[in-house]
Amino acid sequence: MKGRPENLSPEVEARPVILEIDGLTHYFDSLRAVHDFSVTIKEGELVGLIGPNGAGKTTVFNLITGVYRPTAGSIRYEGVQLIGLPSHEIIQMGIARTFQNIRLFANLTVLDNVLIAYHPHSGYGLADSIFRSRRFREREKAMIERSQEFLEIFGLADRQNDIAGSLPYGLQRRLEIARALATQPRLLLLDEPAAGMNPQEIDQLMELIHFIRDRFQLTIFLVEHRMRLVMNICEWITVMDFGEIIARGKPEEVRGNPQVIEAYLGRQAIR
């Protein structure tokens, strides 16, 4: 199948496709940030995307979530063409993401951050909130409770009324994931979730990722530089360099691939 390694287990191959990117190409003016990028992800998989700095990984995420409109190519999510849709509709269809450089609503409380992501599912309208109808009160209460559950999972429950910007860095990263989950996704895109974490924190994060995947039946596509995390949790990995895919395969295969080593360490490393 296009955009997948050959040697995955038949059991995985039998699952339905959730995300199918084909021939994705994007130019910033004359800079070719992504070129002919194809990846197919099946439901429930945990796929990694790695590559040296500036390879175009974040750009791929931005293209999936509709931040930019690609120059060419197609992105299908559960069969629906995403290109041309506004970001918020893509998110509402069930794709959520986090940001490489944290983008929380820094002046709002932790709980608000999660509640905002719930907004499309709030279930009440303008009139309900202006007249404080019963539906408003019920739904609002339910929303808050659901959000608090998320915060509990991420160990943020007791800080729900803190200002998000005042949290320590590690907690902010977690809050970003919590917020992403509150949009009720089926596909989660994580952009360098372990950036700036120490090894213990990375171990915790790995467990957390596994946990949320099982708990919310997620498919996860993640970008990461920390090999410790990628090699341990990803089922298979795509490597890109200068916007193009240079390798894909199981972690141990990728690790030994000379092209990958070259991309990361330069030509000298091979000689």
Binding site: V80, G84, E89, M93, Q184, R186
Partner: peptide, 19 residues
């Protein structure tokens, strides 16, 4: 219920045409 909701949105998307 989450998936039901999502499927509904998706259905709506599928019916849409290019503007």
């Amino acid at each position: 219920s989450v998936t039901v909701e999502a499927r509904r949105i998706e259905q709506r998307m599928l019916q849409r045409r290019n503007g």
